Amino acid sequence: MPSETPQAEVGPTGCPHRSGPHSAKGSLEKGSPEDKEAKEPLWIRPDAPSRCTWQLGRPASESPHHHTAPAKSPKILPDILKKIGDTPMVRINKIGKKFGLKCELLAKCEFFNAGGSVKDRISLRMIEDAERDGTLKPGDTIIEPTSGNTGIGLALAAAVRGYRCIIVMPEKMSSEKVDVLRALGAEIVRTPTNARFDSPESHVGVAWRLKNEIPNSHILDQYRNASNPLAHYDTTADEILQQCDGKLDMLVASVGTGGTITGIARKLKEKCPGCRIIGVDPEGSILAEPEELNQTEQTTYEVEGIGYDFIPTVLDRTVVDKWFKSNDEEAFTFARMLIAQEGLLCGGSAGSTVAVAVKAAQELQEGQRCVVILPDSVRNYMTKFLSDRWMLQKGFLKEEDLTEKKPWWWHLRVQELGLSAPLTVLPTITCGHTIEILREKGFDQAPVVDEAGVILGMVTLGNMLSSLLAGKVQPSDQVGKVIYKQFKQIRLTDTLGRLSHILEMDHFALVV
């Protein structure tokens, strides 16, 4: 994948999101292997301009796509893939009243899908469409860049269908997702969380590099694949309309690839034109409109599966009536509230959605109805927002919020430890010299600072030695090549209790 991002070429006709291997024109390309080798690009942008032909009021008969309808489940399912879809609609009884809503608040519980998330729908649909058009064949390999849930859905379907599955996901995604993927037989590649989507090191860039190296491999490409919004247009939206008897006044959905909100909203605009569509985008993402909503100094966020630093091709923002931004604290607070007060075992993005819903639905009156999409299960986040310690460490809970008995030293300040200034190293000294210094002084790690004293990161003896043994660096290389740029900081005025929580999850903390 090139470091400079080429513009994806656009073909003359058809839909841009065809499933299957992508040609340089962004659509299915038939021909000899030699032709494909000559024409197939190194990668295709996940934010390529959409060429979708959908228009409100256009006859369904003019759609270029294969459409399906929700099917009634048999008493005995032939395999677990038949437990994807037909998820329950559940009334939220307490939270709406707590925040003064007059309307009825309903939750579409997508964590009841077989793999635990709304992404099971698009995973199965992308595979079925690729099999139907002859792209996927027995023994082929599926590769997908994902925040985890699409990966789980694909790995689940691949396990049943017999495909090899490789999932490329950023490091910030939970260990629970990784464990589930491994249990399903998927191979996992992790990428830096802070890598831009168009960087060769991003999950998108690495996935395309693997595709170019592995024979008979395919990126189904949830960011561009029409099967993504079509899955929701054909099934999720129809289920909502049936469950609500066609009567709903507002739908609120958090947005990642945009397939969920695009597919549902398009069908609702056709069948229930008075329904307002509300999009939820986390602070630090750029999906919301108008652009002024996205202006923030924050560039990272903890909530998973929603928000991006690019506009995915499948996201149709014209069908969203209003956007709201959400933050991590309210997302996790509301997710825990949904679990504790409503018994809905949902993930953090569901918290984002409901946090926005109780604001947006203030305009609705008694007798009206708001539906929220709860995308995934708490299963993926047992060591994250479900953990009091994690919430404390991230600053989303305060010590006084917890009532468990603490040891005698818990409320003492870090400054009472009488710490001395640490050994520091410059980023320009060599790895070999740094190892000598650390061994001589008896230290395992040291902060790396520039000549102005600005902290650049941390270097550890173990990481340097393993990097040297693996051949990633040489003793003569500058130590700046092996620094940890993500590390926890703590102030002298913070409590030892807070430091204790940090050290339970990290090997060190830097006192500043």
Rank of each mutant, 00 (worst) to 15 (best):
K267T: 08
R224W: 03
H22N: 13
A38E: 10
V180W: 00
H67N: 07
A60N: 11
P21V: 04
P138A: 06
P273D: 08
C244W: 03
K39C: 06
A69R: 11
G259L: 00
G115Y: 07
P2K: 07
A114S: 14
A107L: 03
L241I: 04
V255S: 05
P70I: 10
H17F: 07
A114H: 08
D198C: 09
G100E: 09
M173N: 04
N149C: 02
S175C: 08
I76N: 14
T191A: 02
S175G: 06
W208K: 10
G139W: 09
K267H: 08
L268E: 01
A159M: 02
Q222C: 00
V255L: 03
T262R: 01
S147Q: 02
S254H: 08
A237D: 08
I240L: 03
K119P: 01
T53S: 12
G151E: 01
P46R: 02
P64R: 03
P215G: 04
K97I: 15
P46E: 04
V10H: 02
N194M: 09
E29T: 12
S117G: 07
P170Y: 04
L181Q: 00
W208H: 09
G259E: 02
A159H: 08
D86C: 07
E131V: 11
L81R: 07
G14P: 12
A253L: 11
A157Q: 06
P145Q: 00
A60G: 06
Q242N: 14
M89K: 07
E29S: 13
I264F: 12
S32E: 13
K247H: 12
L136K: 01
V178W: 05
K82P: 09
E144C: 02
V168N: 04
P88H: 04
R161Q: 08
P192Q: 06
L230M: 14
S174F: 01
S123T: 06
K94Q: 13
Y223I: 02
N225K: 01
A207T: 07
A226S: 12
T87F: 00
A24I: 10
D47M: 04
M169N: 00
K269E: 04
I76Q: 04
T262S: 14
E144N: 02
T193F: 07
N149V: 01
D129E: 15
D238H: 10
L241M: 14
P33W: 10
H232L: 00
K94N: 13
I214G: 03
F111G: 04
L77R: 07
Q243V: 08
A186D: 01
L210S: 02
I76L: 15
A158V: 04
L56M: 13
V118F: 07
G57C: 12
L136A: 05
L105H: 01
G263C: 00
R182H: 09
G256L: 00
V204K: 07
T141C: 15
A38F: 10
T141L: 14
F111S: 00
E213S: 05
G151W: 01
T141V: 14
G96A: 15
G256V: 00
D234G: 08
S32D: 04
M173L: 09
L251F: 07
F111H: 01
L156W: 01
E171P: 07
P74V: 14
C109R: 08
V10D: 03
H203S: 09
A48Y: 09
A48D: 11
P70K: 11
I264Q: 02
A253G: 03
S73N: 14
H218G: 02
I44G: 04
G185N: 02
P33Y: 10
L241E: 03
A265E: 05
N194P: 10
D238M: 10
R58Y: 05
R224I: 07
T146Y: 01
P215I: 06
I95A: 03
L220S: 02
D249P: 01
L136Q: 06
K72S: 04
T87D: 00
I261R: 01
E171M: 07
N149L: 04
D133N: 13
Q242W: 04
F111Q: 00
R161C: 09
M250I: 10
A195E: 08
G246R: 15
T141K: 11
G256D: 00
H67T: 08
